[in-house]
Structure formats: structure tokens, C-alpha cells
Write a protein that binds this DNA or RNA. Structure first.
Lengths: 138, 138
DNA sequence: CCTTGACCCTATAGTTGCTACAGGCCCCAT
DNA sequence: ATGGGGCCTGTAGCAACTATAGGGTCAAGG
């Protein structure tokens, strides 16, 4: 083949660690490639595409389980788009919830830092803010 | 002692699972308490306070490593507050980065869902959108 | 031609922050 | 004295990798 890639080359091309590539293979996300005479993995274009897909989806926060679902759908191209859409929608909901949670957290942290008097730890308001909340407040 | 708590009572009071309390002890976040004649853990007020602190900081997303730093500082009350402030600020930065990432992700998912007609996977843009990035980006 | 060193192989253990058993004690009320 | 809670230790499991040990392979330089 014109484009036979070693695992290291594939890893570099996709911003993945070699060990992670092997791990994706072991858990069935990336199909096992052909081997060279010396038992080295030999990847082709399809592997590069698929690994790019995997990495991108991971970056976007899809779990490996969701990813498996997407890949299964991608492999059966006559299937309805609705299932893929549903997965994406579910994920969008989760993302929005995460954003809201983090924004609340950010406000709280900012408040805490705001109150830090830069004195000694003894009167540090950060420690204070993290200390047990008043009874009844939680 | 007037306020000797069993592990179960302590756990309930702080919204922690019993196993988690023991685990905090094993990893050195919560000091090992005295034991009763029957070898039960017996906690006092100090443990309650410290565990509340731990739980609150965990809720705010501090890692156990950061927590260890905070607790170490909290124990040295004549130290400057600046280190505490720095830990909190670092954490705030991380939180803000995550929010930005998630907002980018949200945009992307919304676009994807938007473009997804209800045809077959063959023209589903979700798969496409997550396929290998343009040549220049690799 | 042979050696060196970068790469690759498998297998296994470690990471973070818990959670969930399994197989036993202990304690209190009935 | 017995039944059921709660407690004890120790171990294994979850995601999603990461890192190590102990080797084999390959291409280039001396």
C-alpha cells in the first residue's frame, strides 16, 4: 500500500499516544490492522480517518460508549440519521448542564477569592469559606 | 468525649458515604480517629469540621492534591494567605478554560444538529463533522 | 558487516476518586 | 440468646488512559 503507517506515525498524525492507540484497539474502537513481517502494526487511510474521528469526538466530550454508538451508526450508512441526532441531542443537553454547573462554580470561586484579605492563613477567608457551612444551610 | 461520632453518623452529617470516609483516611486526608473497645472508629468535632471542609472543596472541584495543599496550609495558621489564594486562582483559571471549551463544543453540537436533516446516515453531517479535520489542520 | 539506538511488541500495574462487594465482628433491643 | 443493624478489613471494579518491564526489529553510521 502507498500509505502504510507505523503506530508511531499514526499516533503523531492524530495527536494520540502510542499506548492509547493500542488501547483503542484492545477495547474494540479501532480495528486491528495488518502486521508487517516483523509483527509491527501497519495502518492505512481508513485507520487514520477512524482514529481522527475518535479523537475528535473524545475532545468533544463523547464517552467511549457514545462513541461506539456513533461508530456503529457510521458503519451502517443506510440507518436513519435520527439515532445519530438523538445521541448528539443527549450530549448537547449534558454539555449545557455542565456549563451551567461550572458557571455557578466560577461565581463561587470568584467570590471566595474576592474575599481573601491577603493576611495570614489564620484569617484567610478562603479557608473560612470552605469551612463547615452554618447548620441548616445545607 | 461528649461528641463521639460513629463513622455512619459522621458520614450522614457530611453527606459522605462510609466507604469514602475510610478512603479519605487511607489516603491521608482525614486523620485516623481513636477506636472504641470494639475497634470502631470514634470521631470528634475536629474530624467533622475537617471532613466538611474536604467535602465542600471537592464539591467546588478541587482535586485531592490541591486539597492536600489547602489542608497543609490551613494547619500552619501563621503562614501567608497568598498560597491559598494562588491555589484558588489556579483552580478558577481551570474552571474558566473548561467553560470556554464546553461553549465551543455546544456551538459545534448545535450546528451539527441543525444541519442534520432526517435522511440516512449517508448524508448525516454529524459523522462528517467529526471526520478527519481539513488537511491543513493535521 | 556489525553495532547502536530508535522504534515496536506484549503484558501488567498504576492513576484519580471513589464504589461495591465478601466474609466476618460487635452491639443493642427484644 | 438471637436477630438485625452497623461496623471491620481487604480486595476488586469503574473510566480512560498512562507507564513500566523485558524483550524483538530495523535502518543508518562507522
Amino acid at each position: 500500500m502507498a500509505d502504510a503507517l507505523s503506530i508511531g506515525t499514526l499516533a503523531k498524525a492524530t495527536g494520540t499516544k502510542v499506548e492509547t492507540v493500542r488501547w483503542y484497539e484492545r477495547v474494540g474502537l479501532l480495528p486491528a490492522p495488518a502486521r508487517t513481517r516483523g509483527n509491527y502494526r501497519s495502518y492505512g487511510r481508513a485507520h487514520l480517518d477512524r482514529l481522527s474521528f475518535i479523537r475528535r469526538a473524545r475532545d468533544l466530550g463523547f464517552t467511549l460508549a457514545q462513541l461506539r454508538g456513533l461508530l456503529l451508526l457510521a458503519d451502517q450508512r443506510d440507518r436513519s440519521c435520527e439515532e445519530v441526532d438523538a445521541i448528539a441531542r443527549t450530549h448537547l443537553g449534558e454539555v449545557e448542564r455542565k456549563i451551567a454547573d461550572l458557571q455557578a462554580l466560577r461565581r463561587e470561586l470568584a467570590d471566595i477569592i474576592d474575599r481573601c484579605g491577603h493576611g495570614t492563613v489564620a484569617d484567610c477567608r478562603i479557608i473560612e469559606a470552605l469551612s463547615p457551612p452554618p447548620a441548616g444551610a445545607r
